[in-house]
Write a protein that binds this DNA or RNA. Structure first.
Length: 138
DNA sequence: GGCGTGACGGAGC
DNA sequence: AGCTCCGCCACGC
């Protein structure tokens, strides 16, 4: 039950609008995505689409982008380990987000070319730490 | 409620 | 490798 790989979400499609926190800071889908992202390990990167699949939301890569954008800062998610399926940083080269992400990746040993292309450690081993508590705890 | 807009992805070329 | 085009889907206006 604490296994993100087996996300217990309703069939993708309808429940995205269901608020999951009293403060309205997220949805069920967002929480599932945050859980998966929180489990990413240093030195590796994963594609948005892959995150979506691990969260039980296949084909909804764009939702992952939204979820990261609206993630509470307190979660301190390793959002920089999420890149596009083509192996490049999603932010436009030159943008703030691009520089931030590139710097964070370089800091943990992931090589990123100026173009935004990640040249090392593409694809991480899917780990499944118990992070539900982190997100759902009282 | 239609319509444009993405931190997307995959297929073509 | 780089560009279109198109499908997808939640959001805002």
């Amino acid at each position: 039950m604490a296994d993100p790989k087996r996300a217990r979400l309703p069939a993708a499609g309808q429940s995205d609008a269901v608020a999951v926190q009293a403060d309205g800071a997220g949805t069920v889908s967002h929480a599932a995505i945050w859980t998966v992202v929180a489990a990413l390990v240093p030195g590796h990167v994963v594609a948005y689409g892959e995150i979506a699949r691990r969260a039980g939301l296949p084909r909804r890569a764009r939702l992952v982008a939204q979820a990261l954008k609206s993630a509470p800062a307190e979660l301190a998610l390793p959002w920089h380990r999420v890149i596009r399926a083509d192996g490049r940083i999603a932010f436009p080269p030159g943008s703030d987000g691009f520089r931030r992400q590139r710097r964070l990746l370089l800091a943990e040993g992931v090589a990123v070319a100026d173009s935004g292309r990640v040249t090392t450690r593409w694809r991480d081993p899917a780990q499944a730490p118990d992070l539900d508590s982190m997100l759902w705890a009282p």
